[in-house]
Amino acid sequence: MTISASPQPPCKHERSPLRIGVHPANLHLTLAAAWDMQFDSLDVEFVRYDGGSQSADVLSLGQIDVCGTSSPQPLFAAAKGLDVILLAASAPRRLDGSIVVRADSPVWSLQDLVGRKIGLAQKSFQIYLLVQALEKAGLSLDDITICDVMPGAGLAVLQQGSIDALVTLAPYQDYAMTIGNMRLLEGSEALIPNRSIFWTLGERQLSAYARASFFDGLERLGREVPQDVARASYILAADAAGSVLRKSWQRAILARDWSIHHINTTILRELQDEADILFRHGVLERSIDLME
């Protein structure tokens, strides 16, 4: 795995467009695609795909040049032997993620999850949150059954009783508490950093100019979103079914630190800790060393 060098002064001649992958779970890039923003003088093309778990494949196929995902995705790609290049990271989001149960559930502790079904989006940060919570409680993935559930559908699946607990994220965790028939079992605070990671593959051959322009564009977006919450919430809640969820989006935007950071030693150590625990629980197919 390679760390991108600090942005260099852009040159005048850059092959374009830069194809930026966009999927619903990455809010920075979802907003960037609708923000009418400029990445300096670099032409960009936003390419939509269904989910972050597809990122390594669409990068390898040359359909996109760069993406933003939850932190496990570049680790999965590196474990497969791909030449992952880390470009940037969001600020930590330690409150964005939780394990919830129905209000009438007999589950009152993590130990009560033994033998039960837990819904989450596979290969997302939710699996990292779950294994951290289980390990903290002296449990492992062998003690529970994982059901693959997309974030937008998770609360309905939990209400129907098809699963016993749900690993969810903003704004759905806020919505779950608001509607009154869910309760918090475990939060992400102090468990995982929960950053978004922006990355590419070496074979995409991004120039220093493209990397710098991409970083600068994200950094600019991170400054503008908190200044226009109404616009950001309108974009993110475009498909929201009700006013309660739309208000949850507004609260989620206000609560989030939208700043963008260069990859540094702290972030690398966080990712190494994540890679180690995912490998220890059999989620990552092989161990990786980010300090190589």
Rank of each mutant, 00 (worst) to 15 (best):
G152Y: 05
A34W: 09
I260G: 04
K123L: 10
S90E: 03
L29Q: 06
P106M: 03
I197R: 09
P151I: 00
G187P: 08
Y234R: 15
V101Y: 01
L130D: 02
E224Y: 08
Q126K: 06
T2I: 15
L139R: 02
G154I: 00
L268S: 09
V225D: 10
Y49W: 05
G115D: 05
A212I: 02
V114Q: 13
D96A: 10
S259F: 05
I235D: 04
R93Q: 15
A165Y: 02
V58W: 02
L113A: 02
Q272G: 03
S70K: 10
Y128S: 15
A91L: 00
R251C: 10
Q205I: 10
L185R: 05
V100D: 00
Y209R: 14
A79Q: 06
L221W: 12
L27I: 13
M182D: 05
H261C: 06
E45L: 07
W35A: 06
P7G: 03
I267R: 01
V107Q: 01
Q227C: 11
P9T: 07
M182Y: 14
H261F: 08
A5W: 15
A33E: 11
E219L: 09
W258M: 04
Q159A: 13
R183M: 08
Q54S: 08
E135C: 15
I253Y: 03
N264P: 07
A252G: 00
A137H: 05
R223T: 11
D104T: 07
T266K: 10
E45F: 07
D164L: 01
V100A: 05
H262V: 14
L169P: 09
A103V: 13
E224R: 07
A25H: 14
H261S: 07
L201F: 01
R102T: 04
A156V: 09
L245P: 03
A238D: 08
L284T: 07
G180F: 00
D43A: 10
L271M: 11
S162D: 11
T265M: 13
L82M: 15
V100P: 01
L278I: 08
A34L: 09
K117N: 06
E219W: 08
D43T: 12
L82K: 05
T266D: 12
P106G: 00
R223Y: 11
M291G: 05
F279K: 14
L18Y: 04
R246L: 14
G180R: 00
D36L: 10
L86C: 07
W249M: 07
L254S: 15
D96N: 11
D112R: 13
I20V: 14
I64F: 06
C11M: 11
Q126R: 07
R286Q: 08
E274F: 04
V101T: 01
T200H: 00
L201N: 00
S140H: 08
L236K: 01
L110C: 03
P226L: 09
G51V: 09
W108R: 12
G217Q: 01
C67A: 12
S71V: 07
G52C: 05
E292H: 15
L120Q: 03
S233W: 10
F279W: 13
S213R: 08
F215Y: 07
D57H: 07
I288E: 02
E219S: 14
G187F: 11
A238Q: 08
Q173N: 14
R204F: 00
D257S: 03
